[in-house]
Amino acid sequence: MAAIAISARRRVRALPAGPRYLAGRLGQAVLALFGVTTIVFFALRLSGDPARLLVPEGASAADIERVREQLGLTDPLWRQYLSFLGGAVHGDLGFSYVQNRPATELIAERLPYTANLAVAALLLSIVFGVTVGVVTALKRGRWQERALMPVVLVGQAMPAFWTGLLLILVFSVGLRWLPSTGYDGPLSLLLPSVTLASLSAAAIARVTRGSVLEQLSRDYVRTARAKGAGTGRIVLRHLARNSAIPVLTVAGLELANLLGGAVVTEVIFAWPGLGQLTIQSVSARDFPVVQAIVVFASAVYIGINLLTDLLYGVIDRRVTVGGAA
């Protein structure tokens, strides 16, 4: 993960920060996005037939053909692809085969749930991860480190379905404090966000620790120490600012991942977010919805990446001024 710290510094230096740079990156992103949607478009059509999943069990081959025609799947592939592209340019990503509603509308409905969960999980994992990271770095080799690291790793070493069910068993079935599944009110947010956070907290803790350790070895910290500054002040004054970039990078990546939908967690907690929509529409070969999700997830990811890049400059000016630190 130290590598990420390196990459962060490198990227900041490579940031001419002009609108030209931004436009260039956006252009590349659109190009890449186009490539991926094309691949997904054709790969999806290789692997299964939505009509077969839509008809009742006793249907005949003719019934299936009827549904295929209805969905426009009997057209040649290139025509289907052109009409998809044509629609996509105008922001029309098609109608869901299953629910017969605009794919974009379905995504818009699920997005608040996913966003809510993602942000809550990110907050929890940042708070927990950064705390653990800083403490284990400062207390390197002491009992605090030995006690804390395994705790973080437990979360990372358990599959989400397992963590989630355990939490439900303890807090919903056993103690009856929190709702087990679904969404009604902020309380419902707690268990799924802890489940998700347990996965990303470890990554954040690790980066924070690495980054703080790196800063600790720098001259300015030693100077501050020599002047008699306490550990607490050093951490707050200097380390926080200088260690923030790699942490931010990882946090950005995690957020993008979370927004793409946390499939397993959403299934366990019956959370009506994008993750469930993804798995349902892929399973049903609901092509328009899957395509729309890919476009959306990629756009979000690219957007967040750009944003974190821009934020580097805002948060750590010293680095931008030529890495003088």
Partner: peptide, 14 residues
């Protein structure tokens, strides 16, 4: 969707 979650819903009276 998950069976174990439906069981937990019954057990927690949800």
């Amino acid at each position: 969707p998950n069976v174990a979650s439906r069981v937990a819903d019954l057990q927690s009276r949800r």
